[in-house]
């Protein structure tokens, strides 16, 4: 499922092959080295370093530097060399962050975006060719249409106005709804994003969204003259977009 990008995989394969070749070359002298001088450290210390220390200890040692050091003496060029410690790469170069699986935006994301934009342009173009936007007769202050309806996204509010005092329906309820919506990230302290961990939040939001959706539906399709309740299949539609 998680596919490594092509160029990264190639690079990793090349690096692996190179490492293998290097390891193959390094093994050869290790086989020649006389074993038994440093039995405990043998598997941890790189073979070429072992070689060097054994070669040095074979020569007559002029000074004894330390007791812990396996060998000390003058090296091949007459230098005094001592192997203090070998730090294995794992202990200091440990990568803790796992690399993220990423893809290039071009073409992977831009292509999807382009197609989506194309599709919605095509949809709105075709829709606009076949369906005309409403233009009723000139505005007339003396002729109130019956029913008078707000734009569809405010019909939920208009619907509330039929049930409550304007102060409650027009201000308090939508005000609280909006306020809670804005504060949602600060109210919801649950750190999990998994749906099964946030059943309450999801239920609450669904009820909230459905509340407005149902009110808008009723206001749009089930309200006729005098904003009285009607069934659209009996009395027809009183709805303009």
């Amino acid at each position: 499922m998680t596919e490594i990008p092509e160029h990264l995989r190639k690079r990793a394969e090349a690096a692996k092959a190179k490492a293998q070749a290097a390891a193959g070359g390094g093994d050869a002298p290790a086989g020649d080295a006389p074993a038994g001088d440093t039995p405990a450290a043998e598997e941890k210390i790189p073979s070429h370093l072992l070689d060097r220390t054994t070669a040095a200890s074979d020569q007559p040692a002029p000074t004894a530097g330390g007791t812990a050091a396996p060998a000390a003496g003058s090296g091949p060029d007459g230098h005094n060399q001592r192997l203090l410690t070998v730090v294995k790469s794992g202990s200091i170069q440990d990568t803790k962050a796992t690399p993220q699986d990423k893809v290039h935006v071009w073409p992977h994301l831009l292509l999807a975006e382009f197609l989506a934009a194309l599709a919605i342009t095509l949809f709105s173009l075709l829709f606009s060719i076949f369906v005309n936007a409403p233009l009723l007769e000139l505005a007339d202050f003396n002729k109130t249409p019956n029913p008078s309806k707000a734009p569809w996204y405010f019909l939920g509010l208009q619907e509330l106005l039929t049930m409550f005092h304007p102060m409650v329906a027009g201000v308090t309820i939508p005000g609280i709804g909006l306020f809670v919506l804005i504060l949602a990230p600060y109210i919801d302290k649950n750190p999990s994003k998994r749906p099964e961990d946030r059943k309450f939040a999801i239920s609450l939001m669904t009820v909230h969204l459905m509340f407005w959706a149902v009110l808008v539906m009723i206001g749009s399709f089930f309200r006729g003259p005098g904003f009285n309740f009607i069934f659209p299949w009996n009395s027809g539609l009183f709805f303009e977009l």
Binding site: P134, L135, L136, E137, L138, A139, D140, F141, K143, T144, P145, S148, K149, A150, P151, Y153, F154, L157, Q158, L161, P166, M167, G170, V171, E240
Partner: peptide, 26 residues
Amino acid sequence: SFTGYLLPWDQLALWAVTVGTNMMGF
């Protein structure tokens, strides 16, 4: 969307905005 609704100045625009702005007055 709501401010654009008034601009055609037809019956739909006028009365939709009348309803909308009446709510605002509360």
